[in-house]
Design a protein around this nucleic acid. Structure first.
Lengths: 251, 251
DNA sequence: CGTCACCTTGATGGATATCAAAAACCGTGG
DNA sequence: CCACGGTTTTTGATATCCATCAAGGTGACG
């Protein structure tokens, strides 16, 4: 990617949002640009945070490995997303492994250098805080998804997340932009790939999705959302009538 | 609580950390103090964020309700914790309901007022960012816990979280400071209270814990941690030998 | 001392993991 | 172009674990 194109894309992102030209220039010039092919690992779970990255193009997958040895995809990062930001700010070990799943261009800052910039410039800190906040919100939503018991719901929720993070809208619906296996989905939903396969077969018959080898298109996202989050038989209202104090299981 | 005692406790927290005396005074004086009895709801899930709170004393429980209508306890907040901070900063609806589970004193800022303070004072923003970051980290860990399939692991993980957030160390181990039912634990672990009861009975026989009616003491936290996170039969190594690029399931 | 909420334990069923085997798909190299 | 091998996917049979249902016990509190 030529230098100007990169600059144009990078400076449109949330991290650069609202910065003065000089400040944006300063931030950009402190970074190095890297082009990374599919399969490259940016960092490993539990590594010390040395670098802070912004995805300019391509896709990066964040995966966590559990105590049981099973991998879980936390989310897919794409253009504009910050990778490893929380860890760099807090000097925590990375909680997940970052792998390129579609050839990517990233901006990269050394940990200490970025910390310095953040501390020195209020506007950068403000942007960082906003991004971290959004990330937190997504994690909280993901916890909600993980607590779903119904299998179809979990798969639907996982698919919708993926579509939002790495989907391309086509005439038919959302198409996932990178090769996704049944096993990947199973990981995200906390199931086996057998169960995922059976469920997808069912949905395919119903015309909800189309899926082949490492390929996935969601035809009817609305209906998927209905499956995932829709009130069905379990019509427990999200909010009781008691809006004031008390009740709500006063434990 | 008398005014001076409150001030002493509040200004020791992470939010006030490193602030100049004047700034701390400014921040403190912008807040109102509220004493809340058990059962009071600070805000409901999906409410617009009107207030931002710091717990000074007591305990507040954050619970989320899923699409299936099941409640999940996200975490217990105690002295020094910020409640609703992310939402206020981003103007997101609260993702969870906050309920007092042990008589609490909280500082409360109006949303707009706190936003103003944060924007105006770098030091406050820095503290906020740090706190939000820590919160994010906990949520990511929680996602890992939620992906555990083994029942004992999930219960152990939930108990350890609770002990860390609301446990008091006694001569015997960690004792939970507020009434906790089997059902509460079941929620946190994504199980039924029958299963929790059976598991706790087993652990009690083994001397790991002692639990009665709404009461819970962990005698051997190390062993619980071993159950939750210990490598057992599934000795899948956390990090493969390939530390450089490539591999790691190049999808 | 009765009532209510919480807890325990047993029996059963159902959903999903597991095991097994074959089919579809893709890249590769003859 | 076609045959081959490996990977992914599908489908079926079985086993297992946990939710569900049922019944009774226990402790707290009026």
């Amino acid at each position: 990617m030529e230098k100007e194109g990169l600059r144009a894309i990078a400076t449109q992102s949330a991290l650069f949002s609202g910065l003065s030209d000089e400040l944006a220039e300063l931030l950009l010039s402190a970074s190095t640009t890297r082009q990374l092919e599919k399969g490259v690992v940016l960092f490993h779970q539990s590594d010390a945070p040395e670098r802070f990255l912004q995805v300019v193009s391509g896709l990066v997958r964040m995966t966590q490995i559990s105590a049981e040895g099973t991998q879980t995809t936390l989310r897919i990062m794409r253009s504009g997303d910050l990778v490893g930001c929380v860890c760099v700010l807090q000097q925590f070990p990375y909680p997940a492994t970052a792998t390129v799943v579609e050839e990517a261009v990233v901006l990269s800052w050394r940990s200490a250098q970025f910390l310095d910039l953040v501390k020195r410039h209020q506007a950068i800190m403000e942007n960082t805080l906003r991004i971290v906040g959004r990330y937190t919100k997504e994690m909280v939503e993901r916890i909600g998804d993980a607590s779903l018991k119904n299998v179809e719901r979990r798969i639907a929720a996982a698919l919708l997340r993926l579509a939002a993070q790495a989907g391309r809208q086509t005439e038919d619906g959302f198409e996932l932009q990178f090769p996704i296996t049944r096993d990947d989905l199973a990981e995200m939903a906390g199931l086996t790939y057998f169960t995922v396969s059976r469920t997808l077969s069912l949905w395919q018959k119903q015309g909800l999705v189309s899926s082949g080898r490492q390929r996935m298109t969601v035809f009817m996202p609305d209906q998927l959302a209905e499956i995932a989050y829709g009130r069905k038989q379990t019509a427990a209202c999200l909010r009781g009538p008691n809006s004031g104090k008390s009740m709500q299981r006063p434990i």
